[in-house]
Amino acid sequence: MKKRWIKPFAILVWLAIWFIAAIIINDSLKFPGPLETLKALFANIISGEGFFRTTLTSLFRILFGFAASAVLGLIFGVAAGLKKGFADFMEPLITVIKSTPVMSFIILAMIWFKFTTVPIIICFLMCFPIIYSNMREGISRTDSDLLAMAKLYKVKKSNIMRGIYLPSAKAYFYSAANICLGLGFKVTVAAEVLTSPDYGIGSRLYDAKIYLEPVEVFAWTLVILVLSYIMEQLLKLAFSEKRGRREEGAAINGN
């Protein structure tokens, strides 16, 4: 089988397994199959009231939390990669954020902040340490020979950052961003389920739980998967090696 057919074939196989499992269980109220899920997606969700507002609100929260963590993670990660003292200063905070259960953060955020902003804060808190750690790693692993070359040719510090540090750390940033996009969807929706704001995919999942409608849970999950895939592809496009550039190896420091 040609390589390009492996992925579509794998998807078909897993869909078939889902389909067969639904037939065996034979209770679409408890475990809906792909056809029931698609039907619910189009009949109840997409054509239902407020689909786009619900979806776009969740997407905005995810992207806002992700963007904030990307910008701050990049700035703090670069600073920590360049200055060990700053990395040591940040270490306890990063360890605490990484080790604290997400539920603790959600509950605390629900006490301290507006419910509508809680999912954004949670998305930021979960993504920031990953982007920070990867950027710190990427910057500190920059080829010292290239830095010596730039120093010898008296290249300005700002140009060393632009021409050596950032390109060297680009692959590390991409790895982190890729992980964080997926994670962002998960934690933002989880926070929405618990805070149940007026609009949000998580709120609709909570409603489905209240009304015991697993088919809607499946359908909304499908919406999340599609959105997550589209975002991942857009990120890939943004980081594509348009000009034939070759980056150094990436590292994954995700949780």
Binding site: A150, Y153, K154, N159, G163, R245, E247
Partner: peptide, 23 residues
């Protein structure tokens, strides 16, 4: 240097420009 120490993300001309810009 023993090894060329080029920036892999810059093309031939850009590698030259990189050290020449600030000279």
């Amino acid at each position: 240097f023993q090894e060329p120490r080029l920036l892999n993300w810059y093309n031939v001309r850009e590698n030259m420009e990189y050290v020449m810009e600030d000279c």
